[in-house]
Design a binder for these strands. Sequence first.
DNA 1: CAAGTATGAGACATTTGTGTCTCATTTCGT
DNA 2: ACGAAATGAGACACAAATGTCTCATACTTG
Lengths: 195, 195
Amino acid sequence: MTRAPGHAIRPKTFHAIVEAAIRLLNSNVDATMSEVARAAGVGRATLHRHFRTKADLLRAVGACCIEEMNAAVRAVDDAGMPASDRLYAMLRTVIPLGDRYAFLQFDTSGDEILRAGYQAQLDWTTALVEELKTEGAIGQDVPTRWAVAEIDQLIWVAWTAVSEWGLSPDDTATLAQRTLLRGLGTFPLDTGQSA
Amino acid sequence: MTRAPGHAIRPKTFHAIVEAAIRLLNSNVDATMSEVARAAGVGRATLHRHFRTKADLLRAVGACCIEEMNAAVRAVDDAGMPASDRLYAMLRTVIPLGDRYAFLQFDTSGDEILRAGYQAQLDWTTALVEELKTEGAIGQDVPTRWAVAEIDQLIWVAWTAVSEWGLSPDDTATLAQRTLLRGLGTFPLDTGQSA
DNA sequence: CAAGTATGAGACATTTGTGTCTCATTTCGT
DNA sequence: ACGAAATGAGACACAAATGTCTCATACTTG
């Protein structure tokens, strides 16, 4: 990214910086370069040596996180599965990762690379929604963008449920999927048990 | 709030500052005091005279907005109505107001007054959810907090739909209510018209 | 109209974060 | 172990934002 010629970075240093930045950014989006350096146990000069500006650091860390997240989804995704199962698999995978990636929500840099990574997520979700529509799990009358946006938001709600309310990732993913596809209402068809 | 003794504020000045702050904060959460003053057509000294610190300004503006929002909901709320109608009324009212109040989403001040105002909203929504549960519109098995959080988030999704995608507030509120209570899925009971 | 007072303009000190640079020290590869 | 190179510590310049203050001007009220 911003490699000075004659200044390679040691993997250990790089890792320490990125991990510290992620940890710090999730507790305070406005973390300073000094704070990141201190948290990484690294000199401020070293930090600036490898990420010349703060924008460079945020871009690198953000891109790294988005890529991780996309990779995690790809790892559990199987185009052969029913779309509703793919939805569940994605939710189950992504929800517990919120602790690590929550700061991405507040990115206002407008950086092109982050934008592209986020767009890749949206594209994936869009394709999934289209498939859910084909399967009849989502109504044809629902605007695809609407469904995509709701899925996106619900991930954060679910993450809150896990991290702050102590719900299990399994239960939460199930609840999220149910909420998305069938809403919060009772199920009149199931057994007639509901009022 | 931060009235110096012997320095009353002219209503026009106060109004100009608050409106400029709202407008500016919605396009950039990190707007500076100078920018607010300039946008308000007011001297920087005057701004500081009435809101000594930036925190004072944000608190005042935020509290003002939350109060406006709560008042708008109260104005269309009728405890005698069915809860699902009250939900719709709230959504229909709040969604178009997003342009004005979106910046509140990004408040990280942790201010007590804002916290209290936001809590009041949550309390209102919580009571509504309880009622929806009683009516059977929301399943007893759904955690109330979950429902409240989803309603909260969906308002922002809906606001995006109106402001960026050009959906009508009526359609969007209907879509939001349907999404909440019955999900994005097709309606097997309705008429069989859906695929 | 006249007095009182809110306002505008701008200077000022302070603080905080950023980014650069140097040099001694430590670490790593050969 | 030796030499190259990455690192740490700290000084430095710089920019931007905050908050204070003064004084002349414009407005409002009685």
